[in-house]
Amino acid sequence: MVSFPIPNPEKMGSDPIYSRIPLVEAELAADRASQSDPALAWLWSLLEQVRDPEIPVLSVRELGVLRALESTASGLRVMITPTWSGCPAMHTIEQDIRAVLEAAGVAPVTVSMRLAPAWTTDWITPGARESLRRYGVAPPAMTSPDAGAADPAPACPQCGSTATRCISEFGSTACKSLWQCRDCSEPFDAFKRL
């Protein structure tokens, strides 16, 4: 039997070994618990209808915007987190969540906005990445420890070629950049990693 040392939270700040172990933040651990809570499963599947207004092939859950549901004595609490700071879709997403829950008779509902931990494209599910690609948008690369590095060239979502060039890091919406394939010549959007 192998025994592991139990982390002492008081020591974690000072002991350098703990700074090298990626720990799940408390909020994310709570999100995961909510996402796998059997009592909430029907609400999670109900909310699967709420799509990103600009990229309707993605649900807000797959996008990582819908973080947690909490059933409390005073009703259902829905926790969402914004993507890009100025993204105008957030308001629509909040309204859509309310409408879907209202239509199913779930009341009262509180929608809360949480800023930290900051949303990252790493939360976009593998299935959603494939949906994006089929929709014609190259999915985001995983974030890099070198935070200042430019996004790596994505494969063309039309022909799959990796010979692509960046036209602009700022595309049709805040979350996308504009690229062109050197092989099939198609211009395409790529989801920026954040």
């Binding site: 890009w84 700071s85 100025g86 993204c87 105008p88 595309g171 805040a174």
Partner: peptide, 9 residues
């Protein structure tokens, strides 16, 4: 896009 980021901020 940059303007929108600043207004969101």
């Amino acid at each position: 896009n940059v303007a929108l980021d600043y207004i969101g901020r």
